[in-house]
Nucleic acid binder design. Structure first.
Lengths: 258, 258
DNA sequence: CGTGGTATTGAAAGGTATCAAAGCACGTGG
DNA sequence: CCACGTGCTTTGATACCTTTCAATACCACG
């Protein structure tokens, strides 16, 4: 179990960046806003910062804000009475956190790495949603993307072997990080792409529906078979991306990297 | 593999019901419409009917309409190259089919039972979405519900045993069918509630991430342990709903039946 | 009464979980 | 500078659950 560190100070109001200069400006819920909308958001937003391992919210609690992930990684997870847990969502920069219209959190939210959130108090944001079709339309689109991602994960959890799960996870991480850098992961830059794992083996296990031992074993197996190389525990080098995709069990033409 | 029956006639334009008399009027995407909106929908909607086993759409194909399920059950599924398939969504009456803004189907859509769809051509519906916040707001809410349902399924596929999967599936079916009848499944009506299984064992296996043999074995085991009784192959009687919920591994207080 | 689709049951194989121990990296304090 | 503790990771041996392969049973229908 990850221990919950109690930190009271400095979790709010670090220095603030104007929306126009925001790193996630063109991918977040505010992506399709125009200048006037941005002014309104700028006025009401505030930042929250969490350290790796901290709890952002617990299932069943009220959450008085919704937010965009600016940097870092957050995990949504569900826990059964006997302690089994399954991560049901991974929030990377630009992803949206919280459900408009429902103040009670449905999942535990944890900072998997140091995390910066751009927050809006619930009520004003919901008003904005109602009055601004650019924002509500964007949110619908993002929610539909989340749904597609969740459904892709259903296939992974329901039908893939442990080895395929690990490979799929690496492919997805590669695609998402490449998307943030606007690069194409299939364009192998000379000596292979490298992927920074923002999760412990235990968090990966929770996400992939495995145990941490199995995660470790399969990573070792992929290394032995030279599908990947490791530098340290958290840095993965992929010499042949197509090979990794083949190991993931997905179609080679899984669409453009989103 | 389910064989695809080719049927060309009678799959469109059966007799049509006015929206005001529609059985799913208060749960579908049109739920929050007012009289004026309904007139507009009434004018442009049309029905499609499918027989059990028929294919509604294939992943990658263009789908020229979006639709609400009026009656029957449809399944969304994904298939890997080697034939492994996972059902990623079960569409019951009032559920919405299709993604506004994306004409290419992401999943195979199959009629699991005889199926009646209330369809709208894509373009006019998307126009309506943009112009009518009642419809777009309702669609956002339904999509968020779908996302929650998918995430509940992630927990099931990732962490539950075969026995728990079957029990969970029965609980969900009981809740959904009770919701359509506006009844509470915890209110046991004398001799236990009964659940009509609208799926073959194979379809259940695809949904639950199991093999059909395991589904069959676990149903037999639940029968031996007197958690359920069977009348025929497709009718399940649950004498003690709380007992079934306990077998599902979920919290007893999993919220009100939605 | 046979036929095809569907469902049940059995025996054996296989993959992942579980339990247990050891290795590694890093920071703290002697 | 090194010993030591802690958290994370790797590796090993075994147990268990689900799959796989195979045979049989059930049921509606022609």
């Amino acid at each position: 179990m990850t221990q919950v560190k109690t930190i009271s100070l400095d979790s709010c109001h670090p220095m603030q960046v104007p929306c126009a200069d925001c790193p996630i400006r063109y991918r977040a819920v505010c992506a399709s806003c125009e200048a006037g909308d941005l002014d309104r958001l700028d006025a009401s937003k505030y930042y929250r910062r969490y350290q790796a391992g901290q709890t952002v919210a617990l299932a069943g609690e009220r959450m008085e804000f919704v937010a965009s992930v600016v940097s870092g990684v957050a995990g949504l997870s569900q826990t059964m009475e006997d302690g089994r847990t399954q991560m049901v969502g991974l929030l990377l920069p630009s992803d949206f956190l919280g459900r408009p219209g429902r103040a009670v959190a449905a999942y535990d939210v944890t900072a998997l790495s140091d995390l910066l959130l751009c927050c809006f108090r619930r009520k004003p944001f919901e008003d904005l949603l109602r009055s601004n079709p650019r924002i509500s339309g964007r949110l619908l689109d993002m929610t539909l993307d989340d749904l597609d991602a969740a459904r892709e994960w259903l296939l992974l959890l329901g039908r893939k072997s442990a080895r395929e799960k690990i490979a799929s996870f690496l492919v997805i991480l590669a695609r998402r990080t490449a998307a943030l850098r606007q690069a194409d992961p299939a364009e192998v830059p000379m000596d292979g792409i490298d992927i920074e794992l923002p999760l412990t083996r235990e968090a990966m296990a929770d996400y992939l529906g495995l145990t941490l031992e199995t995660v470790s074993r399969q990573i070792s197996a992929l290394r032995r078979d030279e599908v990947i190389r490791l530098s340290g525990k958290r840095q993965v080098i992929v010499p042949d991306f197509a090979r990794l995709v083949a190991e993931s069990g997905d179609d080679a033409d899984g669409g453009l990297p989103i």
